[in-house]
Amino acid sequence: MSDERLDTLLTANQVAHSWAGDVFAEDLDAADQLRLAFGLLDLLDEYWVTCEIRFANEGAEGPLPADVLWDGYRERLEADRDAEAVTYSLWVDWFEDHTTSTTAFAEVLGNDIDRVVTERSEALLRRARRVLECSGPVRWTVKEPAYRTAVRLPALHTAVFRGLLASFHDVYGDLEPAAALALLDQLDLPAHTRHLAELRHVLAAGHKNHYRSPGAWDEAVRSCS
């Protein structure tokens, strides 16, 4: 390490870019390297750390131990602290990539949704809300069963609504209009929930995605105003 680097005060983002990748060169087994990376994520709270985890998982020495990887995500999704770096990582890296989205969604919510609804612990509900809200890019056939189960629990209705809204608006969002509308109609939401009427309008018209139906949302806004 140069004296220049020692004398420079780095931001958390700069530390992440400079050192997060080095975790996977440490003389540790892959599981402990991954645990160390998650510790660095907790310390820095920077999305780039999750990028290095993904790079290591896909690299020549990968894949990383799946139990440690997804335990790490689940633990941070359940924690009573900001999880933006983790949810952003799920959204743009794991969920937008259809080669990983099925496994990722199953690991962070799909496999556990029945337990979430049965146990209703604050930690499990927190994880479910966070995953549902960023699940727009996940294929509809993958996430619909979890959405249907989540509808059974009123505490998750707002998160399901936000998931449906993201499924329509996200560039890579995916939904089936009739099935999504049926779910939307089961949600107990305040009548004046922002974008509720517009979402119902576009789904009833059979639109799957904002970007596939240019103008549909604007038409819904005009019709619902």
Rank of each mutant, 00 (worst) to 15 (best):
E61V: 15
D112S: 01
R76A: 06
T103S: 02
T149W: 00
V92T: 14
A123Q: 11
D67Q: 00
R120A: 10
D67M: 01
Y73E: 05
V142H: 08
T99L: 05
L124G: 10
R127P: 05
A85H: 15
A150I: 12
F95M: 12
V116P: 04
S135W: 00
H98Y: 04
E96P: 00
A106Q: 12
D112Y: 03
L125E: 12
R76K: 11
T102R: 13
W70L: 15
V142W: 11
V116S: 03
E78A: 14
E122F: 09
G59R: 03
A104I: 02
L153Y: 01
R115L: 07
N57D: 13
G59A: 06
S101G: 04
Y88A: 14
D82P: 12
P154T: 14
R152L: 15
N57S: 12
E133W: 04
L125Y: 08
P137D: 11
W70K: 07
E122Q: 13
R130H: 06
E144G: 06
A60W: 05
R148I: 05
P154Q: 11
E107C: 04
L132R: 02
I113Q: 03
E75C: 02
L90Q: 01
W70T: 15
N57H: 15
V108C: 09
R148F: 04
T103L: 05
V92K: 07
